[in-house]
Design a protein around this nucleic acid. Sequence first.
DNA 1: ACCGTTGATGACCCTAAGAT
DNA 2: ATCTTAGGGTCATCAACGGT
Length: 720
Amino acid sequence: MPPIVTVPIAPVSDADASHRPADPRYRLIDPPTQYLDKLAQQWMVARGESQPFVHYTLDRLPEGYTLYEMRRPSNPNTADKRLFGHPNRVFFDSPNRFFPHFLHLMKNKGSNFGCPCTVCNANGKKPLGIQDSRSASADSSVPRGREKSRLMDSVRDDKAGKVDEEGTPDVYRALIDKLKRKGEIDAPIEEPMSMDWRVERKPLQVMLQRCRTQAPWIPRQGEIVLFVLSIPEGREIVFDYDTSEYRLYHAASETYEDSPAWRAGVVTQVPTEEKSYEVFNLVMEPSHKLGVNYSGFRVESLPDPNGEEKSVQKQYKYVPLHYTRPFAFYQEILRGIPRESWHATITNAMTIMSSFSLVDRFNFRGSWPEAVVNCRGIYIGAELILVGDAVRLLPPSEKQGNITSVDIDVLHIKSIRLTLTNLDRASDNDRDEGHPYNTSVEVRGIPYTTNPIAKFADVSPLNDNLGPLGMEDYASFTPFFPKRAKGKLVCIPFHRILGRCYDAIAVQLWFPNEQRKIVDMSQKKNQEVTGAELPNITLLHYGAEGVLAARQYSSQNYRKIDHRSGKSWFWGDTRVESLDVHSMSGAPVERFDANRDPRKWRREIRVLEGVGPAGKVRTTEEKRKLVEKFGVPGRRGRSKDDENDVAAVWTSIIEEARYNGNEDADDEDLYHALGAELLARDGEAEWAEETKGNSKRRKFLDGGKRDAEDHDIIVIDDDE
DNA sequence: ACCGTTGATGACCCTAAGAT
DNA sequence: ATCTTAGGGTCATCAACGGT
C-alpha cells in the first residue's frame, strides 16, 4: 500500500445535478473510486505537485456529478461507466475525457466557459473561449506559488551510531570522525545517501523561503494551533468584555453564546495564496469567498503523543485563518472553560510543549574537540522558529515568577546552532544513553527591550517598519530599544524562547481588551516612566504563563522525555518524531511508513552511484535498468535518452573519481564527490536558475551563516 | 448511445540470485 | 545446501478510444 493522500477539490461545480440516467439498468457507483483516483493523480501532476510513491485521491467529485455503470446488453461481462451531470446533459465515458473539464473547473472557479473538453465542444455548442489556460489562471489573484504539502526536517540527528536505525549513514558521526582526523572542518552537511533527505530537501527550502517573507502571524507547517472545526452560520468568535472570555456571538440577536469548541491540531498544509491574507483575516472572514480548500490551512487533530492510537489525527479539516489561534495563547483563549471540558487534543498539545527538533542542519564547522552545527530553524513546542524571525524571550529562569511584559525581551535571530563540545571525551561509538559529549542549542541575535531602563545607553527606539517582521506597530505606545551596542549579538539558550513576536496589530486583534488600556498608555507615552511603574499592559507577555505551565506539564508527562537522567526536554530527530504523529498530510512518513524500505533504497542509490555493496562498480546496463524503474531521483524526465545519458554520466563520474582522484580515494571522499554531483543533478541548477538575480533569495540560500558574519560580532553570553 | 478493438495494467508464476 | 526474495515474463482483464 502506497501512502494515500486525499486531495481536496475546490468546492465549485458547473453540474446539472438533475442530469441522471433514466434507464433503471444503470447502477450508481458510490464512491466513484476510479474517477477520484485518476483525476487526483492527473491533477497533482498538472499542478506539478505529484510526489513519487504517493497515491492521490480526491475527497469527492464536483457537486452534482454522479457516476453510473451499465452492463452491456450484448456482453454482461463488460460494463461501461458513465459520469452524469454535465450541463449539456451528455455524459462522460471515461475519467480521461472528464479530466480536462475538471481541471478547467478547478482553475476557473467552476465556470466551464472556454473549457476544452470533448463534451463542452460537442456539436458547436461550445461557447468560444480562451484557448490558453494560463491566461485564465493569470487573471485570478492566485499566484502560481508552489504548494507544499509535506513537512520534514531534512537531516538526522546525532544520537545514533555510524548508521541510524534505518541504516542511513549518520553524517554527524562521519563528520565528527573526520574532524578528529583533520582537526578542522567547515563544510556543508549533505546526506546524498538518504532518500528522505534528497526527496525532502527542495520542498523544505521552498517552505522556509515562504516563511521568511510572510507575516509571522500566519501559521507555519508543523506548528500546533488552536482551531475550531466550524463556526455556526451567523456567528463569530468575539471577546466578551464582561467576562473576559472568548465566546460565539450571534450578531443578529446580539447575544453571546457558548465558548467556541477549541481543539489543538498540527498545521500540515498551508494555503496556496496566503499572500492574499490581510491581518484582519486573523479574526474575520476574508472578503474574497474562496473555497476553503484554497484559502484554508489543513489542520489535523493532535493525537495523544503518549498513546498508540493515532486515528484522531484523521480528523483533519481545511480551515480559514480566523478559525485558528497560536497555541501559545491557550491559557488566555480558553479562559472561562473548565479544564475538564477541554478537548483532549489540547492536553495532547500541552504534552509535547517541551520538545524541540532542529530544522535544516546545513553546515558543520569544527575545530577539535568542538564543533558547531548551523541550522535554519528549530521547532520549539508549538512553534517553528527560523533564522530571521523576531522572537519573544522569557526572562532568565530565576526571574520567571510573575512575568510582566517589560520582562519580555525580543530577539532578532541571526543564527541557530547546535554546539558539540568535549568531543574528545566521547567514545567512538556514542550509541550509549544520552550524549557522551556535550551538546547545547543556542540562538544568536540582536536583543531589544521595551523597558527603558534596560536599554543600551542613549540609543533611539526602533522605528516601525525598519525592524524585522513581527516588530511592527509597536513604536507608538511601547517602542523597542536595542539592548546592546550596534553590531553586538547575544547568545541565548533555546529554552528561553517563548515564541514568535507578532505585529502589535495582530496581538490587538486577538486580544481586543487591551485596546482600552492602550489608549491609557498612549497618553503616558512621553512621560518619564520607571520600570516598576510600567503597567503590565504591553502586548508581549501573552502566552508566557501558559507556555511555562505547559512546558512544565510536558516535562512531567511526556513519556519520551528521559526523566531518569534528569532531562526536561525531548530532543526529536524530526518534527514528526517530536509530535509522535505517524503521518503528515495523510501520507505516512518517516519510519512509521510500513511501506518504506530504506535498505532497499539505499542499495539502489548505491548502485545508481556505481558503488556496489562491495564497492565494485556496477555495469551501465544495471544502472540503466534501475533508472528505468525508479526514474532519476529528483528529476521528472524519464525518457530513454535521459536514462541512458544519466547512467552513462554516472558511470563516468565514478570512473573519473577513482581514476583521477587519489588511488586511495576512500569511500567517504568518493561519497562526497558523488553527493555533490548528485545534488547538482537533483535540480540544484534549476533552483539556482530560479533565484538568479534575486539577491534576497540568494542570501537566503546562503543562510544564517552569512547573516551572522555580516556583523562585527562580539558575542555575549546573556544567560546569567 | 452502443459496441468492437486495442493498449495498458495488474496478477500470477517461474527463475535466478542472495541470505542463512 | 536450502530457504527467501527480487525480478522478469506471461497472460488475463478492463479501461479507453473511436467507429458506427
